[in-house]
Structure formats: C-alpha cells, structure tokens
Computed example of a mutant assay.
Amino acid sequence: MIYLILGLALWVAAHLFKRVAPDLRTQMGNAGKALVAVGILAGLGLMILGYKQAEVVNLWYPPTWAVHVNNLLMLVAVFVYGMSATTGRLRGRMRHPQLTAVKIWAVAHLLVNGDLASVVLFGGMLIWAVLEVIVINRSQDWDRPEPGPAKKDIILVTITLVMFVVIAGIHMWLGVRPFPG
C-alpha cells in the first residue's frame, strides 16, 4: 500500500507543481518539464505497482448492478475526455473535460470496487481532480473557444465507441471482466 500512496502523492505533486510554483517552473525551462514528466510517470508506475501488490481488504461488496452503471459512466468518461480534443460543436462546453472525465472514471470505479486499495487509488484520483480544478479556476481565467462544425462531434462519438471497446479489451486481457456474463 505504501507504493500506492507514494505514487499518488508523486502524481499530485507533479501535476500541481506548475500551478503552485509557476515562477520556479518557468525558471526551470525544459528541465522543469522533464522533471514533471518523470514525476508523473514515476507516480503512475508506483500507483500500478502498489495497487497490484496491495493486500485485498474488502470494505464493502458492491451490488452486481453497479457494473452496468460503471460501464455507462465509463462510456461517458471516455466521451467527456475526448471533448478536450474536439473541434466540433461541443468544443468549449466544458472548461475541464479531462479532469471531469477523471472524476467520472473515479466514481465509476469506486462503485464496483469495495476494497481498500481501490478506495485509496480511485478516491485519491477523485480528490486530486477536484483539487486541480479548484487550483486552475483560481489561478487563471478561461477564454471559451468557439464551437466548430457538428461533423466533428460525430467523429468524437465514433472515436469514443472505439476507445471504449479498446479499453474494455485491455481490461479483459488483464483478467478484469468489465461485462458480466
């Protein structure tokens, strides 16, 4: 569990570094960018290692219907994440689509995982995403981008469906069954 907690702490620190210490981050130039990238990757690696090694301590047993809610929320999370890259009509509808997607992802996974390591991982990521939005909103104004053509949103829906299938396939490859059967 210690690796999981250290990984989460490193992830949060690396992501918040440019928001909390912008002058220092600017002074560091490319070295600062590299440091943040290494911190994020190391944090991710520690979280994965810590999650895989954590002892299973069940706090609750999720109901079977939660899997269906999880899958629906995950489809929404993939779509919302994709909104950050769209140039269609949905562009600018949401200020923080990637962080909102992380929040949806975290809640979805908390619904279907009742063990302590999952609460630490997904709860920690949820807290980080909320904190990140607060810090960003306080530190900078937002210029809402102009919406683009609707056909770009159709592309977003198509990419969302493909990515959802890919993500589900990766889960099955890893031995996690995202669809009850």
Rank of each mutant, 00 (worst) to 15 (best):
M1D: 06
I2Y: 07
I5G: 06
G7S: 08
A9P: 02
A9H: 05
L10R: 09
L10P: 08
A13W: 01
A13D: 02
F17V: 05
K18R: 14
D23Q: 14
T26N: 07
G29M: 04
G29Q: 11
G29H: 02
A31H: 10
K33P: 08
K33N: 15
A34Y: 08
L35Q: 05
A37L: 12
V38A: 13
G39E: 06
G39T: 11
L44I: 14
L46G: 06
I48W: 12
L49F: 06
K52D: 11
Q53F: 00
Q53H: 08
A54K: 07
E55R: 11
V56I: 14
N58C: 02
N58I: 12
L59Q: 04
W60T: 06
P63D: 10
W65P: 01
A66C: 03
V67H: 15
V69G: 10
V69N: 05
N70H: 15
N70S: 14
N70F: 08
N71M: 13
N71Y: 06
L75T: 12
V76E: 01
V78G: 01
F79M: 11
F79N: 06
S84L: 03
A85E: 03
A85P: 00
A85Q: 07
T87N: 10
G88I: 05
L90C: 03
R91L: 01
R91Y: 02
G92R: 07
R93L: 08
R93Y: 10
M94Y: 03
M94D: 05
R95V: 02
H96L: 02
P97R: 05
P97L: 04
Q98V: 15
Q98H: 07
Q98A: 14
L99G: 01
A101C: 08
A101G: 15
K103R: 07
A106F: 09
L111V: 13
L111R: 11
L111W: 08
G114W: 00
G114T: 09
S118K: 04
V120W: 11
L121W: 05
G123V: 09
G123K: 10
M125A: 11
A129E: 09
V130P: 01
E132N: 08
V133S: 04
V133W: 00
I134A: 11
I134K: 11
V135W: 01
I136S: 00
I136G: 00
N137K: 09
E146S: 15
P147C: 12
P147W: 09
I154E: 06
I155G: 12
L156G: 10
L156S: 12
I159D: 02
L161T: 14
V162G: 05
M163Q: 03
F164N: 03
V166I: 15
A168N: 14
G169V: 07
I170D: 01
I170E: 03
P178T: 12
P178K: 11
P178W: 10
F179D: 05
P180E: 12
G181E: 08
